[in-house]
């Protein structure tokens, strides 16, 4: 993940545009799929409006003094309770709350390429139109 340093507050006006209503079949990664869906529809930036389903295993991350650390959640059948965040080609940032098969909750950043759909994921994105 890129960690660009921001020197000053940025404000962007805009509105929400088209919706992309999708299903991810098994073994598809959430972040890669979200970016592929945006690219296929010519969308430069989008927000997650809906996301639920299940993962084979979840791999979540958080920032620490030593850099990004991993929270592995072993499945299969890790339930996605919610996904939030922005999609920007190659620079998406998505967070998720998930539960393992014992119902225990975990939260963190979605690690790219490491959160694969188990049975299905319903993912709905909405275009962000600046200006």
């Amino acid at each position: 993940m890129n960690a660009a340093v921001l020197d000053e507050t940025q404000i962007q006006s805009g509105r929400l545009g088209r919706l992309v209503v999708a299903r991810l079949k098994p073994n598809e990664d959430i972040m890669d799929s979200a970016e592929a869906l945006c690219a296929a529809h010519g969308i430069g930036a989008a927000v997650v409006r809906g996301g639920l389903g299940s993962l084979i295993d979840a791999n979540l991350e958080y920032h620490s003094r030593e850099g990004l650390k991993l929270i592995p959640v072993t499945g299969p059948g890790v339930e996605i309770l919610s996904i939030t965040g922005e999609i920007r080609a190659g620079d998406s940032r998505l967070q998720a709350v998930v539960a393992d098969a014992d119902g225990k909750i975990y939260a963190g950043l979605l690690a790219r390429g490491r959160n694969l759909s188990f049975i299905t994921i319903e993912l709905t994105l909405q275009e962000w139109l600046p200006g």
């Binding site: 088209r18 919706l19 295993d57």
Partner: peptide
């Protein structure tokens, strides 16, 4: 690699992403 895939009992079908576009909500 460092992730597990799960191969289900039925034949996998392409495409792997199913999607439709809606103008607004």
């Amino acid at each position: 690699g460092d992730v597990r895939h799960f191969i289900h009992g039925g034949e996998p079908q392409e495409p792997r992403l199913l999607d439709c576009e809606v103008a607004e909500g």
